[in-house]
Design a protein around this nucleic acid. Structure first.
Lengths: 220, 220
DNA sequence: CTTAATTTGTCCGTATGTATG
DNA sequence: ACATACATACGGACAAATTAA
């Protein structure tokens, strides 16, 4: 039945093996020849599966050394995806919107937790705003995601961040900074509705600028 | 310089070719041998690149026919990634909480859209409640997710649903039904805060019962 | 219905670059 | 310097599936 799409089975087998052998990120997985022998497949076929996983950023191969489980954070997946999938406007908006879902939820969680609302990080961000230092949206939002404490949501967010193409690598503008100070205040005062409103306004403001320029202006 | 990672160059070349030739989703791309000849690489190496793109859901290969640009947006990569991401012992609370994030967000979207709020589905659900028919949480929430219109969020939700172990296959109890009627009313009246409160109360109620019995029964 | 051509699926053999001891 | 182990890459061979003549 499953004679075609064998390399998908291999992907599954490798995943199962990793789980079974409890291989941790950074560890080495068996060599190509070993795996081919163990899984009873040709080396070429096995390599196709390995390459797929490599493009996804799940493993890392180093010539002469071996193949290793990646401690994630791989770039090429960003470019490949953004150039293929994100051509479609609807998908692009879905990614952005889903990202916002997790971000807003993180803010809700933070506002509901008094310990999180009264942290020194807010002062830190405020200082960076006042000192006119460079301030990146990604840094700020990442902090929110981490603070929310949901690791799975954080991972999904991290994924979506990569998928959303070339995002907010640029520092925030002066206009945005004027929005951020009230947002920080709202977070500290646990004023959830204000915080969310301000955040959404800010995010919507940025997105407009983002959506203006044609999407594909990236290369690798 | 770029002697290693040739298959990444091939991925890039294929992308450029698709852009240059203006190949649309669903169209066929040149055969493996043609591409290998044109790009001056071996067929095995080229296949590694193609497989990678296939696992990402960007292309589709059919034996005997050829290779095609995938036409329906494929977020299957989220699934593949998630099976790896979730391989480490992820606390069930995170999965559950993340699921709720998407569900609550769907309710927010629905409440903000008057067209969605005034649909006959609510009456349908209400009837099933009153008629004392079997009523499953999953059916109801799935409807919410679909109505929200974010396909990516829906896809992630499906995924989390599978990973949250043995979920809500049992019909809702009489006590829960008494919570559901006000929830339906709140949805129709676009009373967002009430709807969310009721939904969270209901969900929290169910989760308590769920967390009692042991969980993990996942496979794929 | 049969046959031939095309295309992907799979495997093998060989050579080469690279890291480790 | 040498040997070993590994990934990288190529080309050939055959099987299986589809399509067209």
């Amino acid at each position: 039945m499953n004679q075609s799409k064998r390399f998908l089975d291999i992907v599954k087998d490798i995943r199962d093996m990793i789980r079974r052998e409890k291989i941790k990120p950074g560890n080495r997985i068996p060599s190509e020849r070993e795996l081919a022998e163990k899984l009873q497949v040709g080396r070429s076929t096995l390599r196709e599966a390995l390459r797929s996983l490599e493009l996804l950023g799940l493993i890392e191969t180093r010539r002469g050394e071996g193949t290793f489980l990646s401690d994630h954070r791989n770039h090429q997946l960003v470019e490949v995806l953004s150039t293929f999938i994100l051509q479609d406007k609807q998908s692009q908006e879905d990614v952005w919107e889903t990202r916002l879902i997790h971000e807003v939820s993180a803010i809700q969680t933070i506002c509901q937790n008094s310990k999180l609302a009264s942290l020194k990080v807010w002062d830190s961000f405020r200082n960076r705003l006042n000192e006119n230092e460079s301030f990146y949206r990604e840094d700020f939002v990442r902090e929110l995601m981490v603070l929310s404490g949901n690791r799975l949501s954080l991972k999904i967010w991290f994924l979506l961040q990569q998928y959303s193409g070339n995002p907010y690598q640029e520092p925030v503008t002066a206009t945005e900074k004027e929005m951020l100070l009230p947002l920080l205040a709202a977070l500290e005062q646990q004023d959830m509705s204000s915080a969310i409103d301000l955040f959404k306004t800010w995010s919507g403001w940025i997105q407009k600028g983002r959506m203006q320029n044609g999407n594909d202006s990236r290369d690798l």
